[in-house]
């Protein structure tokens, strides 16, 4: 019977799909541990450089780094948008893009122009469709964040800020709360805030080598790059977490669908057998 064969084909298709989603779930599960370790490995650097920047902000009040003080001249904003390269991770990217889009709309209403640096393929294709001004991008960064992959695209935005073309730079990424909870966030990156913690103990200054301006700017630049690096690492952990959850849900759904299809299959089969028997009996009765 054709009806039966069709249902059987459907069942095997869903079973194949389930195998796929299950495999992806397992892959994400093993990856998330590595990605999370990498995220934690980068933390000490982030803390240390933050301390150094805090010390520095007390030491030399004469030189004002452009990274710390707003110039507000150009009415342009910069945005660094971090998304995943691949899909199959639930609403991770769409939630983030929704947030970014709202903020961009808000800026546009204020008459600000926006320059965007996208990290990850998903954000780029979305913004291309939205006709946004993408000045630089990094795609295909894999599962290990590397500074040299990020330095170039991110550098364009930071340079534009330093030379006064941008008033502020924001960063948009998905924060890793735990394996199941991920939060899209939008943070202000530049000018830096909150690096003036604590009160200076008397007047003192560093011995600078080679000279204060260079070293202050360079250290702050490294700090900003470290923040971006950490954001990318967090986004990767979130991506794997979201994928794990999404693929688990997909596998569970597949199980339900298979159960339902099997039920229909058995009912149809039973009906066919009953029909045949009735036909035979009625045929025998007629004889």
């Amino acid at each position: 019977m054709s009806g039966l064969r069709e249902i059987r084909a459907k069942i095997s298709t869903v079973q194949n799909l389930q195998k796929l989603t299950h495999a992806m779930e397992m892959v994400a599960q093993s990856k998330i541990r590595k990605v999370r370790d990498r995220m934690n490995a980068a933390r000490p650097y982030g803390e240390m450089i933050r301390n150094v920047c805090a010390h520095m902000s007390h030491a030399h009040p004469e030189y004002k780094s452009p990274y710390l003080h707003q110039h507000e001249t150009s009415n342009r904003a910069g945005l660094i948008l971090i998304t995943s390269d691949k899909g199959m991770c639930g609403a991770l990217n769409s939630n983030l893009l929704k947030l970014a889009y709202q903020q961009m709309k808000h800026w546009q209403e204020q008459g600000q122009e926006i320059e965007i640096c996208t990290i990850g393929a998903k954000g780029m294709s979305f913004l291309r469709r939205a006709n946004a001004n993408i000045v630089s991008h990094a795609v295909g960064i894999g599962d290990t964040p590397r500074m040299q992959q990020l330095a170039l695209p991110v550098g364009r935005i930071l340079d534009a800020y330093k030379s006064g073309e941008l008033d502020s730079v924001h960063i948009c990424y998905t924060k890793f709360v735990n394996t199941i909870v991920h939060q899209p966030v939008m943070e202000q990156l530049l000018p830096l805030k909150g690096e003036m913690l604590g009160s200076p103990f008397g007047y003192w200054d560093y011995i600078y080598e080679p000279d204060p301006k260079v070293i202050v700017d360079e250290t702050l630049r490294r700090y900003i790059e470290a923040l971006i690096f950490l954001a990318v690492a967090e986004n990767m952990a979130s991506e794997q977490g979201a994928r794990m959850v999404a693929m688990k849900a997909a596998s569970d759904n597949a199980t339900h669908v298979i159960e339902e299809l099997k039920m229909i299959y058995h009912k149809t089969r039973q009906a066919a057998i009953t029909e045949e028997i009735t036909e035979i009996i009625s045929g025998a009765a007629a004889v």
Binding site: H55, Y206, I207, Y208, E218, T219
Partner: peptide
Amino acid sequence: EVGIYPGHAPMIAR
């Protein structure tokens, strides 16, 4: 090259 003993004056260098 710089050599640093405990109690060195504050310094920041590349």
